[in-house]
Design a binder for these strands. Structure first.
Lengths: 243, 243
DNA sequence: CGGATGCTTGAAGCTGCTCAAGTGAAGTGG
DNA sequence: CCACTTCACTTGAGCAGCTTCAAGCATCCG
């Protein structure tokens, strides 16, 4: 497996439909922006070919070169603790950004791995700094996304009790996976039970039991990685700590 | 209790010794920077009077106006969950920044409260945006601090087991409270047991027992809120999961 | 001094972890 | 096409650790 940043050529001019859901959408489509600037901005962002599951985007210690946006698929970011166990920091779904972890010490402090077949947009940070002042908008946008991630993090690991955390996780993933006004409560988890468990700081066994429990309560329907929220309202109550 | 942003006048020209430890130090003291720019930059940052314990800096829902740096003292950021229980998000010690949580939706999503008598620097975000291009450095600096906070968050709540988390917490606070080359392993916790417990997602009782346990293992010395790391090396091992 | 607050300690119960076996789907090779 | 393997997940039983509830102690402040 090669580190991604080395190998990917810029692939421009593909269909841009996926962009509608991207966190950088307002940036890439700054309606009514100076066309010349827009051209330069678009020239910066590279688009990856399709990355198969298991690919590594970057590893701990890799130098910071870019911020990434997920066009399709799912990325897992994780690190390995002193005992050799993997600690999952988070998952990045369609339209979300990742790679901030290296903004400060200029080196990545987690590994980013492809879970499902994934394609990315790559935003080289150095070139952005070079354009400098003209790209205030992008920087402001990135600040916002960082801020949002910031609060989101704390929400999942937080709640007391395994059931609460699992419920919160399912709702979290659902809202990030679906378009705003969808009434389709089915989705497929891109990640393994182990990964979810690590993320929630519980064991895979406990996770399995809690999923079964929520199933028996008729709040969700579980079939392997396919999930259906049967009663999202009550599931939300559980997520907020109602027994 | 008034919201802080309303009431505080700019207090300039105080002694700037505390600044040496500030996250924004490189920004406020950009050695060899254009004096004119430096003057304008300094004019932006306001310094608060002394805030007594219990003061509220901002509340959930308050509009985003500024980012804050702790000159002396300690700030707790927290929110209240659906069940009415306080959830502590983090603590901010001397030299650290807080208030990022509102960068995105333009409203604060947690409460910030003074734990010890505290004085702050206030960095009004709007004025910074106004100066715009000239302040790239500040924006870059703020990005970095956000990034660092980002990873730091995940570290404490992470480890398995209460003892591990408590040990990690003590080391964390110690390193943030002391100057780099200090050999003085004593410090005073600015926050209550309840707050620490909430932050670590354990109960205050468990925390108390774990502190007593670490004391009996002769790794630390506990006297009310005064802590002394007797064997920092072994404490570090515990923090990393060595039973 | 008396009350309040914040912290510690004790005993009982439950949640979640560990270890171990079992299931079922997908892929492999004959 | 069917045994065989593998991998991911589920399920069960016993145990440890954390929580809960309750009482006991210091320290601070009037």
């Amino acid at each position: 497996m090669n580190t991604y940043a080395d190998t990917v050529p810029p692939v421009l001019g593909e269909g841009r439909r996926a962009c509608r859901f991207c966190s950088l959408h307002e940036f890439c489509w700054p309606l009514g922006l100076d066309p010349e600037l827009l051209r330069r901005v678009r020239a910066i962002v590279r688009r990856s070919e399709s990355l198969p599951a298991g690919s590594i985007v970057f590893r701990v210690g890799d130098q910071f070169t870019a911020i990434y946006a997920v066009r399709t698929g799912c990325i897992k970011s994780s690190s390995v603790d002193a005992g050799g166990h993997e600690l999952v920091h988070g998952f990045h779904l369609r339209g979300e950004l990742f790679g901030f972890d290296a903004v400060y010490p200029d080196q990545h402090r987690c590994n980013a791995q492809v879970l499902e077949t994934t394609s990315l947009c790559v935003v080289p940070f150095i070139e952005i700094d070079r354009l400098g002042a003209e790209l205030q908008t992008l920087h402001a946008r990135i600040r916002r996304v960082m801020s949002r991630e910031f609060t989101r993090q704390r929400m999942c690991g937080a709640g007391y009790g395994a059931k609460q955390r699992v419920a919160a996780f399912l709702i979290n993933i659902y809202t990030r996976l679906h378009r705003p006004n969808s009434t389709d409560y089915q989705f497929r988890l891109p990640m393994s039970r182990e990964d979810i468990a690590s993320y929630l700081s519980i064991t895979a066994e406990t996770l399995s039991r809690q999923l079964a429990g929520l199933h028996k309560m008729k709040l969700i329907r579980v079939d392997r990685r396919n999930i259906r929220l049967v009663d999202p309202a009550r599931l939300g109550l559980v997520a907020q700590g109602a027994s």
